[in-house]
Design a protein around this nucleic acid. Structure first.
Lengths: 249, 249
DNA sequence: TAGTGGTCTAGACCACATT
DNA sequence: ATGTGGTCTAGACCACTAC
């Protein structure tokens, strides 16, 4: 009667067998999505979880370590295991790949210059997989690095996932942490598609450059822990003194 | 007398203690660099390695799995553990992040249009950490995706690491595999720095576009398994129908 | 059938942080 | 002193592949 909370051990040759540690991994992720433990909170110890799930401590450990690699958890020896908050330096830099040439990376400050509601038009509805009659919240921001204005962003959020955002007094500049704490959306998967473009006259005005200068343009699509498409973002960035940094492998 | 090939177990409180599995990891990497096992070759089984190193099979497993994650090894259940070759699809795509808009990724074909020797000038010597009097091999290539010319590349290789390359009959288009098999340099770490630029007249000519169109420019620095700076590369890419794809996290 | 890697368990001990 | 995660070991069994 050593029944697990999950499918029973090996030899469970169903069509879609998952090893125990994978099942534990997915279950813990689900519990985080359901807010059993909130960002920053500590999980029970490995042995307590092992008891609850009726698996061995080693199996729990393998699952927790895997979630730590995926930056969903953080573990501290002698202290405990915690749900990641999108505030730690390590987590933040993953999202801000723009670096001033020859300088050390710095988190850009940002200022929201517009907030509105719109219908999801072609580009936006396609990427966020919304029907064209659904509403999106549009945030326009400008960002500075080392005090110099260099980035413009338009951010599109499905209104259904961010009810109440239009009524917020202020939008903080650490958006992903804001999504996580105020709307329970933990950003998990991000892909950027980068192009080179000529600045529009509008953007050139805002950035105080002459029309026709090249800009880095990247479109970003972000998914939450539970797989929902949370954010579509179009960023234009000066590129004479800045670059987008990618580390492969 | 259970002495390891390595520092003895725990409680080895030297100033720079490394856990056993880390030491095994580094030692196996070193053996690969020294060509005890060549790319594509099979390693001994976990138990054989455990015997040789005087550690447990579980410790060897942890090391080998870690090297598998780092794409240095490949493991196949029921078969064995192999040194990665830079030919498998999975490995190749990591290096070619340029994708045609709305299409599935395709490996670009490339053609070497020039091969010469030069002195490492400022930019190049700085990035490859060479003194200015050292020689580099310069390769110029053009690449096509879906049959359309869209990429120009200048590649700089320290001559000292690639003796004999100038005498090769032909340079294949899968360069990293070529480095690995012919010069024993396994590329391991790559970083790309991406900018938007206006095409020079020279590049515009080669790419059959009009001068002044924007291009994606990225500079790449590649390190080998043993940490040597192997390659510096400057790539210019059409960006109206193509983009550089980055998956974060 | 034999050999390989994959999973799971159980237990010992270490290192770290807090009380 | 206690409790946490980190390391290491040993052994059992499973699944896959090749012969």
């Amino acid at each position: 009667m050593n029944k697990n909370k999950f499918e029973n051990k090996l030899s469970t040759n169903g069509p879609s067998y998952q090893p125990l540690y994978k099942q534990v991994e997915e279950y813990v992720t689900q519990l985080i999505v359901e807010q059993r433990w909130k960002p920053g909170e500590m999980l029970p110890s490995e042995f307590q979880l092992a008891d609850e799930f009726n698996v061995s401590q080693g199996t729990v450990r393998k699952a927790l370590n895997s979630l730590t690699t995926a930056k969903i958890l953080e573990r501290k020896q002698g202290v405990g295991t915690f749900v990641s908050e999108h505030t730690s330096q390590s987590a933040l830099y993953k999202f801000f790949p723009i670096v001033a040439d020859g300088k050390t990376p710095e988190l850009p400050m940002s200022e929201t210059i517009d907030r509105s509601i719109a219908l999801a038009t072609g580009d936006i509805s396609e990427n966020l997989k919304l029907s064209p009659d659904e509403e999106v919240i549009v945030l326009s921001r400008k960002r500075k690095i080392h005090g110099k204005l260099c980035i413009l962003e338009d951010i599109y959020l499905p209104k259904k996932y961010f009810e109440g955002l239009m009524e917020e007094d202020e939008i903080p500049h650490t958006l992903y942490h804001f999504y996580q704490t105020n709307y329970h959306h933990t950003v998990q998967d991000i892909s950027d598609r980068i192009k080179a473009v000529i600045s529009t006259s509008e953007d050139a005005n805002k950035l105080n450059i002459s029309e026709g200068e090249p800009l880095l343009l990247f479109t970003r699509l972000a998914k939450s822990l539970d797989g929902k498409l949370i954010e579509y973002r179009i960023t234009r960035c000066l590129s004479d003194d800045y670059h987008y940094l990618v580390d492969l492998m």
